[in-house]
Amino acid sequence: MTYKLILNGKTLKGETTTEAVDAATAEKVFKQYANDNGVDGEWTYDDATKAFTVTE
């Protein structure tokens, strides 16, 4: 299944996707991606759209 990450960081904005077996796996991938790019903020998840959002 495809999951999307929407980044609303102070220095990094954009979107990326990942293929994962479930939302928990996608969340781990996205949190590592955000951490690697220096984005740390409030996380939300919308199951209807399979989209995670992180806002700094």
Rank of each mutant, 00 (worst) to 15 (best):
T11F: 14
V54Q: 01
W43N: 00
G41K: 01
T49K: 10
V54H: 01
A23R: 14
T17W: 14
T2K: 12
F52P: 00
D40E: 13
T11C: 15
Y3V: 04
F52Q: 00
T17H: 10
L12A: 08
Y45Q: 01
F52W: 10
A48T: 11
K50V: 03
T49Q: 11
G38N: 10
K10R: 13
G41E: 01
D47N: 09
T55Y: 08
V21F: 13
Q32H: 06
E19V: 15
A24Q: 12
A20M: 02
V29L: 12
E42N: 09
G14C: 15
G41Y: 03
K13F: 09
N37L: 15
K13E: 06
G14M: 14
N8C: 14
E42I: 14
G14Y: 13
T49I: 09
G14V: 14
T18V: 14
N35W: 15
W43L: 03
F52M: 01
K4Q: 06
L12S: 07
Y45C: 00
G38Q: 07
V29F: 15
Y33H: 04
K31S: 04
D46I: 04
T49Y: 07
G41P: 00
T53Y: 10
L7C: 09
T17A: 07
K13C: 14
T16L: 15
G41C: 03
G38S: 06
E27D: 04
A20K: 02
Y33Q: 02
T55W: 08
K28Y: 09
V39F: 12
T2D: 06
E27F: 15
G14S: 12
K4W: 10
T16S: 08
Y3D: 04
A20V: 04
T17M: 09
L12R: 09
A24D: 10
L7F: 10
A26M: 02
L7M: 12
N8R: 10
A24R: 10
N35I: 15
E19N: 13
Y3N: 03
T2C: 13
A34Y: 02
T16A: 10
D40G: 08
D22G: 04
E56V: 09
L12Q: 08
A26Q: 00
T53M: 09
D40F: 15
T25A: 14
E27N: 05
D40V: 15
G38Y: 06
V21Y: 12
A48S: 11
K4I: 13
Y33D: 01
A20Q: 06
V54N: 01
F30E: 00
T16W: 15
E27V: 05
E19W: 15
K28M: 12
G9V: 10
G14D: 08
Y3L: 02
D47S: 12
M1H: 15
Y33R: 03
A26G: 02
G41L: 03
T2G: 05
A51K: 10
Y45T: 00
K31N: 04
F30R: 00
T44C: 10
T16V: 15
T55I: 09
A20C: 08
V29H: 11
K13Q: 12
E19Q: 14
I6E: 04
V21H: 11
E19Y: 15
E56Q: 10
D36M: 11
Q32V: 07
W43M: 04
G9P: 03
E42S: 10
E15K: 06
E27W: 14
D47T: 08
K31T: 05
Y45V: 01
G41I: 02
T11W: 14
A51C: 15
D22A: 03
D40H: 14
G38E: 05
T17L: 08
A23W: 14
T25H: 12
N35Q: 15
A51Q: 14
K31R: 15
V39E: 02
K50C: 06
T2P: 05
A26H: 00
A23E: 07
T53A: 05
A20H: 03
E27S: 06
D47Y: 08
V21P: 15
N35F: 15
G9R: 04
T25I: 07
K10I: 14
T11K: 11
L7Q: 02
E15T: 13
G38M: 06
V39Y: 08
N35G: 08
F30L: 05
M1Q: 14
T49G: 07
L12I: 13
L7R: 01
E15D: 06
Y3R: 03
E19L: 14
Y3F: 12
V21M: 12
D46L: 04
D40I: 14
Y45W: 04
E19K: 13
N37D: 02
A48W: 07
T2L: 13
M1L: 13
D36Q: 11
V54K: 00
K4L: 10
T53K: 05
W43K: 00
V29C: 08
T55L: 06
A34Q: 01
L5Q: 01
T44I: 08
I6P: 01
A48H: 09
N8T: 08
V21E: 11
Y33M: 05
A26N: 00
F30H: 01
A23M: 12
T16C: 15
D36V: 09
D47E: 14
E56A: 07
T11N: 13
T18C: 15
A24V: 10
V21L: 11
K50F: 09
K4M: 07
Y45S: 01
T17V: 08
D40K: 14
T18F: 11
K31F: 05
L12N: 07
A26S: 02
A48Y: 11
A23I: 10
T44F: 10
T16R: 13
D40M: 13
V54M: 05
A51I: 15
D36F: 08
E15G: 07
L5Y: 02
V54E: 01
A24M: 11
A26F: 01
K13N: 08
L12F: 15
G41A: 02
K4T: 14
V39D: 01
W43D: 00
D36Y: 07
T17D: 05
K13S: 10
F30S: 01
K28C: 09
A24Y: 10
D46A: 04
K31E: 04
K10D: 07
A20G: 04
G38F: 06
T17S: 11
T11R: 11
Y45I: 01
